[in-house]
């Protein structure tokens, strides 16, 4: 069950400060890296919502991001829709498709769920690759960025785009943690821990799974629509299953079921990619070795390792234990705390 902890707040604050500092002071390449990290972080938060809190390890989130990117590109370039409308449309259409995928795959578990999502992802990849309307292997170019000059923001400026991407990441982080602490998120966590019992309590299990998968797909689509604007181009490679695989690696690297962990994973992954690939083509090998080390350490990713070492800061903030606190207050008011 998602819980705010002091460590999470401190980590979030530190990441936000560093990201803003980099976006303000870095040269072109550094700013682009900030944007790339922000977009990947949005995608992996979406994946962590379902994998870390619902046990739904999806291998189609890359395809969902790609679907969001293509939907945005199609709606702007081919249909001529205004970019803000296209953004909303891409998120809505992909969200609906994700809900359907969640409704179907949510009836399976474990390896079967993974394979079912992989199948959906590969079907989407094939469709985009084969259908001429999607531009085939050439993809779609000339994807416009949203015009925010009305509020004084020029998204054609890379630095401004990075800040907007970070703002979207912040909003997604807030939304994800909010939903995970709301009834839907708590029900999903209950299902992950004991699906049979949740059903016996009267919960419609597949509906919870489908709804959360739909919300997760909407977030992945937002990442895709941002990615399409970032490079102003979309290609079928965005929907490849390897993108989903990389997203899963990032989630595990950072810390499954923590939300902040995958953000750390995204930072480490992108920085490793750029730094190591400058020296060798085998940068995946280095990432692989680090992933093995993280998994073998028995910590829950990098953030899990931090939590183990800073356990005092990893306790839930007191405000979280609402019921127990309220119960104690009520009992104390009745003077019956000792009886309890």
């Amino acid at each position: 069950m998602f819980r705010h902890t002091s460590l999470r707040f401190w980590t979030l604050g530190l990441i936000a400060a560093l990201a803003i500092w980099r976006a303000l002071t870095a040269e072109y390449f550094g700013v682009e890296t900030v944007t790339e990290i922000a977009i990947l972080a949005i995608l992996v938060i979406a994946l962590d919502m379902v994998a870390g809190f619902g046990g739904m390890v999806s291998l189609c989130h890359g395809a969902l991001m790609g679907a969001g990117a293509y939907a945005y590109a199609m709606l702007t370039v081919k249909a001529g829709l205004a970019p803000p409308m296209a953004f909303a449309g891409a998120v809505a259409v992909t969200g609906a498709a994700s809900w359907l995928i969640g409704a179907v795959c949510g009836r399976s578990h474990g390896i079967y769920f993974i394979m079912a999502t992989l199948a959906f992802g590969q079907m989407a990849y094939s469709l985009v690759f084969e259908q001429p309307i999607f531009g085939g292997d050439d993809g779609i170019s000339g994807v416009p960025r949203i015009d925010l000059t009305i509020i004084g923001l020029d998204l054609n400026d890379g630095r401004t785009f990075a800040f907007v991407s970070l703002a979207v990441l912040g909003a997604v982080y807030w939304f994800a943690t909010h939903v995970l602490q709301a009834g839907l998120g708590r029900s999903l966590t209950g299902i992950m821990h004991n699906e049979q019992r949740m059903r016996a309590l009267g919960v419609n299990v597949w509906r919870i799974k489908a709804d959360m998968f739909g919300l997760s797909g909407m977030i992945a689509a937002a990442a895709g629509a941002l990615a399409a604007q970032h490079v102003m181009f979309v290609s079928p490679g965005l929907l490849n299953w390897t993108v989903s695989g990389e997203a899963l690696v990032v989630v595990i690297l950072g810390g499954l079921g923590t939300i902040i962990g995958p953000v750390i994973g995204a930072i480490v992954f992108v920085l490793l990619k750029h730094e190591v690939s400058a020296h060798t083509d085998y940068w995946h090998l280095v990432v692989g070795l680090i992933l093995i080390a993280v998994v073998m350490s028995r910590a829950n990713g990098i953030f899990g390792w931090l939590e183990q070492r800073l356990s005092r800061l990893a306790r839930p903030v007191p405000a979280r234990d609402v019921i127990a606190n309220q119960v104690r207050k009520d009992l104390a008011a009745k003077g019956s705390l000792e009886d309890a």
């Binding site: 909010h178 709301a182 009834g183 839907l184 708590r186 209950g190 949740m198 309590l201 509906r207 919300l215």
Partner: peptide, 19 residues
């Protein structure tokens, strides 16, 4: 709390912490 959330119809909302 999970069981009580179901009883009181909060199991599916996305607006507030059911507990």
């Amino acid at each position: 709390g999970l069981a009580a959330s179901v009883t009181h119809g909060h199991w599916h909302n996305i607006r507030y912490d059911s507990l």
